[in-house]
Design a protein around this nucleic acid. Sequence first.
DNA 1: TATATTATCTATCTGATAAGTAGAGTAAGT
DNA 2: ACTTACTCTACTTATCAGATAGATAATATA
Lengths: 150, 150
Amino acid sequence: MTSLTQKTKYALKALFYLARKDQQEPKSPALIADIASSENIPRKFLEVILLELKHNGVLQSRKGKGGGYWLSKAPEELYVGPIIRIFEGPLAPILCVSKRHYQPCSDCEDVEHCSVRQVMFKVKLAILDVLDKTSLRDVLSSSESPIILS
Amino acid sequence: MTSLTQKTKYALKALFYLARKDQQEPKSPALIADIASSENIPRKFLEVILLELKHNGVLQSRKGKGGGYWLSKAPEELYVGPIIRIFEGPLAPILCVSKRHYQPCSDCEDVEHCSVRQVMFKVKLAILDVLDKTSLRDVLSSSESPIILS
DNA sequence: TATATTATCTATCTGATAAGTAGAGTAAGT
DNA sequence: ACTTACTCTACTTATCAGATAGATAATATA
């Protein structure tokens, strides 16, 4: 379960690129082509992604020479959770534990006492506790601490 | 992201059914047909699922009259994490943070400093902290506490 | 105003996978 | 022998991820 799609991963990579750029020169436009080549993202696919981010208020853009994309807010105001939701939909592992997209399973006879729901509710809380509290900025500044897989 | 498949959900429902039954009468066989009708699971599909659970050491079975499926261990010895892994594969949101199935993305040039990986590593820890520490038994006995979606 | 530059839109393609079904075969109890 | 139930093989159908192609619209600057 829980695997990030390529699309979402590309979106995050592009946003971190823009966030790093924002720290040096806020709100200055970056070219699709530059992001694509720097982050190894297929250009045409990235176009779709950036547009979707713009339509969801995460990015702003300008056409023509000197144009490009930039973050609509400062990196510390953009949280990872809402961004992932744009591409993946609800973060809850199952809809009966989603607040906004709540829907019981069609085969469920007693939502209140479902054991699967009990576990998945805890999982959901754990996931949101990370994603909805981590901003783009938080991640950039935490990149010194090493990862030990366990 | 992170949505449980129907198959996995059915597997868990079947296991909780067997766990409840085990509490009353340990290791007594349950019929596929009974589980299917009690939990609203398509019978043929459930056959596939139970078989897979047996092949992975979670269930035992006996054929013929008086046969059926039962838990291979007590409910407190069976953890949710490993069960979900059988059907969903790695629980990590992305393979570069998985211990057993570690693999960097093909488009990644510097795994150690990848920001996406930083976030997803935290998410993985949070998920495992729930699923690998929760047994079937834990869930059954916690089913009094109500769920408040937030 | 012309032209180069850059984002935006419309449409389509391919392969993989979830979810489920059909039907025959095999083993165990009574 | 007969019933019951587990086991295996093969298939179907629909949806979606992951792109790509080609044309169009907006902007800056010479």
